[in-house]
Design a protein around this nucleic acid. Structure first.
Length: 280
DNA sequence: AATTAGATCAACCGCTTGTGG
DNA sequence: TCCACAAGCGGTTGATCTAAT
C-alpha cells in the first residue's frame, strides 16, 4: 500500500472515529481492512484503521509504564533479536511493537549506548571473549522449580558451548564466532528442541545429507530447522543427560538468532529460552 | 510569563511477505 | 509461475508535552 488515498483524513484519531472502528471490529472481527472505511464511512485508509486497532484500540492492550521486568526482557530480547520489534512484542503480552520500538529508541538505546561506550574497547573485547568461552552455570533443579513452572535446562546444552572435540583451531573459532541458525518451531518440548534439533548428525541422517560444508535443512512434523555452515558435532557424545523440563515451548514465529561475539552467547540464548518457558 | 530545546509517542510511509486466483 | 492484493513490519516524521532558562 502506498500513500493514503485522496480525501482520507490524517493525524490524530477522534473519540468518535475510535468508537466507529471499535464497533465495526467488535461486530465483524479483524481483517479485510480495506473494506473498513467503505463500510463504516470512516475517512481513513484501511491501513490506518488496522494500525489504530492494533496499537491502540485492541481490548488486550496494556496501558501504563513499562515495568522493570519488561525493561529487562526488552533489553535481553533486543540483544538476541535486534530491531525485530514484532517478535519482541510477541513475548510481552499487551505491548505493541510500536510501543516497544518507541520505548527502545527514547530510553534504552541511549542507555545501552552509554553503557557500551563507558567500557574501554580493549576491555570490552576481553570481557566478550571471556564470557563467550565461559562454562555455563547450571542451575540446581529443585521441586520448587517444577512447581513454579520455571524451566531448568540441564547439562545437555552445556556441551553446545564446547567446540567440536576434533576441532582445529580454525574451525573452533568459526564455531564460536560464526554460528548461525534459523529455526521455526510449532510446539515441542524444550528437551526435544535441545536434544534433537541441535544434533547435526541427526539432521544429516534425516536428510540423507553427507556434505559437511553444505547448508542443510530438516523437516519433521513439528520442527523445521535450517542450519548453515555449522561446525558443531555432537555425535561423539556418549552420555547426554536428559533435559529436565517438560514444559512446552510454544513458539510459532520464525526465530533468527546469530550467536556471535557482538550479539551474545549461548547463555544469553538459554536465558531467553527460560523466559519463554516461564510464560508458557 | 514567554520562549526554547528535548522527549515522547501516535501515526505515516515504503518496503517485504503471504496468499489466492 | 506470475500477478495482484492484503497484511505486516520497521524506520521515520511531526504534533504535543514537559522541563529548563
Amino acid at each position: 500500500m502506498g500513500r493514503s488515498p485522496e480525501g482520507a483524513r490524517r493525524g490524530a484519531w477522534t473519540a468518535e472515529e475510535d468508537k466507529i472502528l471499535s464497533d465495526y471490529i467488535n461486530k465483524h472481527g479483524e481483517g479485510k481492512w480495506r473494506n473498513v472505511p467503505k463500510q463504516t464511512g470512516l475517512r481513513r485508509c484501511g491501513k490506518a484503521c488496522r494500525l489504530r486497532w492494533f496499537n491502540y484500540l485492541r481490548p488486550d492492550i496494556k496501558r501504563g509504564n513499562i515495568t522493570p521486568d519488561e525493561v529487562d526482557l526488552i533489553i535481553r530480547l533486543h540483544k538476541l533479536l535486534g530491531n525485530r520489534w514484532s517478535l519482541i512484542a510477541g513475548r510481552l503480552p499487551g505491548r505493541t511493537d510500536n510501543e516497544i520500538k518507541n520505548y527502545w529508541n527514547t530510553n534504552l538505546a541511549k542507555r545501552e549506548w552509554r553503557k557500551e561506550s563507558s567500557v574501554c574497547q580493549n576491555e570490552k573485547m576481553e570481557t566478550a571473549e571471556a564470557e563467550f568461552l565461559q562454562e555455563p552455570e547450571l542451575k540446581p533443579r529443585t521441586d520448587q522449580d517444577y512447581d513454579s513452572n520455571v524451566a531448568i535446562v540441564g547439562s545437555s546444552y552445556a556441551d553446545l558451548q564446547q567446540p567440536p572435540l576434533n576441532s582445529t583451531e580454525e574451525n573452533e573459532s568459526n564455531f564460536l564466532l560464526d554460528f548461525d541458525f534459523d529455526f521455526e518451531i510449532g510446539q515441542i518440548t524444550f528437551s526435544e528442541f535441545m536434544d534433537e534439533d541441535f544434533t547435526k548428525s541427526q539432521l544429516f541422517e534425516m536428510n540423507g545429507l553427507t556434505s559437511e560444508s553444505a547448508a542443510f535443512s530438516s523437516e519433521t512434523t513439528d520442527t523445521q530447522v535450517n542450519w548453515n555452515a555449522c561446525d558443531f558435532d555432537k555425535s561423539s557424545e556418549t552420555d547426554t543427560p536428559a533435559c529436565s523440563s517438560e514444559a512446552l515451548w510454544s513458539y510459532s514465529d520464525c526465530f533468527d538468532v546469530t550467536l556471535d561475539s557482538e550479539q551474545g552467547s549461548w547463555r544469553d540464548f538459554i536465558d531467553l529460552a527460560e523466559e519463554c518457558l516461564i510464560w508458557d
